[in-house]
Write a protein that binds this DNA or RNA. Structure first.
Lengths: 150, 150
DNA sequence: TTGATATAGGACCTATTCAGTCCTATATAA
DNA sequence: TTATATAGGACTGAATAGGTCCTATATCAA
């Protein structure tokens, strides 16, 4: 149901480190060393995060990576999607037979609504929250309030 | 991030059908036919749902399956876990090296809190909601209110 | 008692996805 | 020009998901 892939786990640790010193230009080697993530894997993650708009990169000698935005403006949803790709709660459309069932599509719209609620949480929570020493629940501005109908 | 496996998708369609006529004893063959889910797979799902406490089964000729509880008392979380097994947001413990990092465990507790919020939604939403023709948002008793700190 | 009809439980195979590695190209600074 | 970075891709092995099949057991009816 809700599971972080190992790579997202790694990425969040790497990003947490970067977020604590947002002005440093980090090299892949440095990040790999500090985070214990094997260098090839670390490099792969950094590339994905650049592609996903989470990081900026500077090429060449003395180059490296830095956060593209302040931690408070990086939703965890963005991080997850950068690593795992865009993910809907159901693909729907793969199985034509099922989709013709009366039940199927109505049940699926409920699932999709559930997915929206989860999305809402993941969008509201940011990298800043991840590195905070305080529980999410303690922050009134981060509590999940009644959802609005759009 | 949040994705229904195909099998959970199938299971929800099957359960939706059963929920609309809760007093019928359904045979696997009947359910397979009505839901377009291939019989072997359908049977597998039904077994998992029995094991997970969602369904009751009656063996022998004229046997079959029925809901173990009223739809309003079957959280979707129970359904998901019956099919996909218990799933935590991170395994944690698989990678000893990462776990020794100062950052890692604090970041992971935030992820875990996020997981708890999602859990909360999945526990509050039931099979009854899934088969409802009305959007989840329209039901005030199903809206996600401020979470409590335990 | 026997046969037909169900579920129970497990083994098993295959396809897809995930994790991880490696190679070559390109950009930059000294 | 060389050393040091990232960029982009191909590739491999492992893990998981999806799907099938076989044998055992329980129940009902003739």
């Amino acid at each position: 149901m809700v599971r972080l892939s190992k790579l997202t786990d790694y990425a969040s640790v790497i990003l947490a480190q970067m977020a604590r010193q947002p002005d440093v230009l980090w090299s892949a080697g440095q990040l790999s060393e500090d985070s214990s993530v094997p260098k090839p894997t670390c490099i792969k993650l950094l590339k994905l995060l650049v592609k996903g708009g989470v990081l900026n990169s500077t090429q060449g000698a003395r180059g490296g990576y830095s956060l593209a935005r302040p931690p408070s403006q990086i939703p965890v949803k963005t991080i997850i999607e950068a690593i795992e790709g865009p993910t809907a709660i159901t693909e729907c459309g793969t199985d034509e037979t099922l989709c013709r069932l009366t039940d199927h599509c109505s049940v699926m719209s409920r699932w999709r609504e559930l997915g929206d609620q989860v999305d809402h949480i993941l969008t509201k929570t940011t990298l800043e929250d991840l590195i905070s020493p305080h529980t999410l629940y303690a922050r009134s501005d981060r509590r999940i309030e009644t959802l609005e109908v759009h």
